[in-house]
Amino acid sequence: MPNTDDFRVKRIQKMLLEMAKGNFFYTIEPSDKNDNIASLVVMLNMVNEEIGAAFIHQGFANAHNTPQCIIQLSLILNSQGKVELVTNGTCSLLACMPKDLIGKQITEFMTEKSQKTWSKKMIKHLKRDRSETVLFLELITNDGLILAQDCQISVYQALDGSGQKILLNSVFFSKGEPFETGLPKNKLKVTKGIKEHKVTLSQEDIEMIREVHDMILNNLDKDLPSLKDLALQMGTNEYKLKYGFKQIYGTTIFRFLTQERLRKSKTLIQHSNLSLKEIAYMNGFKSAAHFSRAFRDKYGKTPTELRG
């Protein structure tokens, strides 16, 4: 994992954003450096732990007035430890797309310490047809944050004869939405125009669309699949995904992606020393010309003019 000063600061920024959203289950892996950034990381982890513990305690003590969000990490692996199935919640937690997880070794997303723990413990459990245990694992997100959590590990034989499978589960407690969203609790009528394109969204549909929103924010450097393929990945249909997203967030999925890419690019131009080419690439723009044209259309200046 890179450990440059810029990367360390970016992890701190990402951690602060997650805390602002009410997610207190992430930490930053301490480095062996002894500088101001390292001290800030230690203090931030301590503050995060204290706030998270206070919120969880308050939630149990006063559950009616303090809503909790239970986020499930769940993966199915084959006996070699390769990911075969993954939930949408897991992708949101690890800030990646399903295709970035499926087919990969689970140890690729672990710290070195957890890789050793996994390799040592799973040898014994895979010798049995059925086995259950709890392992404390540290998973690394796409942003370099750490998910340190007790994970329930279940080894079982697949009914289709495909051999042993490993089920990895964990539960995260969160404060939930930090601000009032104004969304109704049961159903939301979605319309386009006056009487056209009526869709009924359940609470599960709304949560699914929020996951798409978060997935886009966490993967601005990647191209989205087609709406049809994205809907299939999220377990819904293209129609509901398309019009539901527009009603909740006021814009289309692909327009939102472009807006967020440009917004992040503007921040990096103003507050980083990255080259314009690097900024364009890391935000999903295929060419400097395309980036410059889109940026000028949005902000009235080219990236070069803004930085100059």
Rank of each mutant, 00 (worst) to 15 (best):
S162Q: 11
G161Q: 07
K175Y: 08
V171K: 15
L168Q: 08
S162A: 08
D160R: 06
K165H: 09
S170Q: 02
F172P: 01
N186V: 12
V155A: 02
G182V: 02
E180N: 10
G176E: 08
K185N: 09
L159A: 11
F179W: 08
G163F: 00
K185Y: 08
V171C: 12
K175W: 10
S170F: 03
E180H: 09
L188V: 13
Y156Q: 06
S162V: 05
L168S: 02
G163H: 05
K189F: 10
Q157R: 12
Q164T: 02
G182R: 05
L183H: 03
E180R: 10
F173M: 08
K189I: 11
N169G: 01
N169E: 11
G163M: 01
A158I: 03
G182T: 01
K187P: 00
A158P: 00
L183P: 00
F173A: 07
K187T: 12
I166P: 01
S162N: 09
K189G: 08
L168G: 04
S154T: 13
L188E: 11
S154P: 00
V155Q: 00
K187R: 15
P178V: 11
G161H: 04
G163I: 02
V155C: 09
G182C: 04
V155S: 01
A158W: 01
G176V: 07
Q157H: 02
V171Y: 15
V155G: 00
K165P: 03
A158N: 12
G182D: 00
N186T: 14
V155D: 04
V155P: 00
N186K: 14
V171A: 14
L159N: 11
I166Y: 08
K185H: 13
S174W: 02
F172A: 04
N186R: 14
K165T: 03
P178A: 07
E180S: 08
T181W: 07
G182W: 04
E180D: 10
E180M: 06
S174R: 07
V171Q: 15
E180F: 11
N169T: 12
S174K: 01
S154N: 12
G161P: 07
Q164D: 00
S174Y: 03
F172Q: 13
F179H: 09
D160F: 03
L183M: 06
K187Q: 08
D160T: 03
Q164P: 09
N169L: 13
G163D: 02
V155E: 05
G163K: 00
